[in-house]
Amino acid sequence: MAKIVGGITTSHVPAIGRAIAQNLQQDPYWKPFFDGFPPVQKWLDEVKPDVAIVIYNDHGLNFFLDKLPTFAVGAAAQYHNADEGWGIPTLPPFTGDAALSWQLINSLVADEFDITSCQEMLVDHAFSLPLKLLWPEHDSPPLRTIPVCINTVQYPLPSAARCYKLGEAIARAVTSWPEELKVVVIGSGGLSHQLDGERAGFINKAFDLQFMDSLTAAPKWATQYRNEELVEQTGTQGVELLMWLTTRAALPGEVVELHRNYHIPISNTAAGMMLFECR
């Protein structure tokens, strides 16, 4: 049977890609951020997962407002990166796992999640950067990937409570799949940041730390909040923490926090990272 071995949550911002391209990992500005990752890289090297389910939000690359899904699941053999508007060189394609994708889609729809399935899908920095941070030596990560995309572009967003249920349903889908597979769930987004409006630059360290603690001590804690409250607490883009919450909800059984990092700022963002292992 497929097993969920753990979960990794991390922030993403396009500037990380530029820092990697320019080899700034040891630069004083970037070091506190990049230093968070070696322990997780080591864990991955030991655990060697076969598949990564990447829970992220599209930033206007694959989806536009003409067809904007609440939840989308990739079902392709390969996923391509593409120009997001900044002319950054595109990455080699990511290998998919279409069979497990369809297991996810079948199981989620049976569980009354109204999935948009995507047999072709462009993946943006929110998908690609965590993989680059976790497997820095590889042009393309050495495992199969499945994109799961949650709408943060246009309200109404799915509630934190709904996202939590999605994560639980992802766990059911994976753990009922007969193939012998080790699956890691990666959540990409947050933590507190706000790019737009006169409140741009808003960061809330106290809330972020409370949220990170909650993922270990009381994972459903954040489901008490409406998205408007999450925006108030974490900024307009801080609501991307829904990716973390969904990821944590997808970890079944006993879950142990093995590692975390938190640093302010990278770009306009409070950057967090956590590693959970399923026991």
Partner: peptide, 10 residues
């Protein structure tokens, strides 16, 4: 027309 057919016939 399920996932298997969808992959085959894309």
């Amino acid at each position: 027309f399920d996932g298997d057919m969808a992959m085959k016939g894309y």
